[in-house]
Amino acid sequence: MSAALSISGLSKSFAGVRAIRDLSFEVPKGRTTALIGPNGAGKTTVFNMVSGVYGVDAGRITVNGTDVTHMPSRRRISTGVARSFQNIRLMSHLSVLENLLVGQHVRASSLAALLTPYRLIPNHRWKREARAALAESGLEAYADETVGALPYGVRKRIDLVRATLAGASVLMLDEPAAGLNPSETNALRDHLRALAAKGVTLLVVEHDMHFVDSICENVVVLNFGEKIAEGPLSVVRRDPKVREAYIGTDGED
């Protein structure tokens, strides 16, 4: 079993406050893993270090066997790791379709691609591909809308579709179900299962434990920047350290 994403000995401090402490875990290829933990545990910070928004203080990050620890953030997506954002970061003045086209960039960044007047070509394959991806999530009606005006749930899912369009083999999703209504959550679940069926490795940060339970084989639990447990959710949730970490925040079950 080889790892799609491997993190070892990772540490990060902000102004002396240690946000991540000596964190190590692996995300196996083709599997869906959840990264959970109370607010402020450091989940988003892990994503930020893997995608290169933050540098690391110590440790090593490997994606599909490539060491990306000191790689410039821009080049990391071409090693096969893409992400979504907890607070949706779509380009709000652009249309949905244009956002998705930016998502394809890593696969269309040659000079020839940059200078292709795709807007003048009806049904150019980029546009076809993006529309098809939208249709898969049932969002095709929004293709030409400006993103800024769309409801939260729709934007949240478009953020996810954009991440998938990079064609990455590892997807990191930061709270993809947050703020979605039940039917949107179901659609999201189907979408993630379809991605997993295609062999995409998923690392999902999520607070909704039923959702996690329904898609993830494995969970990694963070608290105060440290890994406190790892394994199948049914086992992990009985762990006394995990129960303690969640007291008052997630008292279910």
Partner: peptide, 25 residues
Amino acid sequence: SRTRFALCLTAVKSDATVADLLGVS
């Protein structure tokens, strides 16, 4: 303005951090 280059420029203008993460130079 009809090319991907123009699209990249707009992307950089509206969110340079995210454009960078999506692989835009």
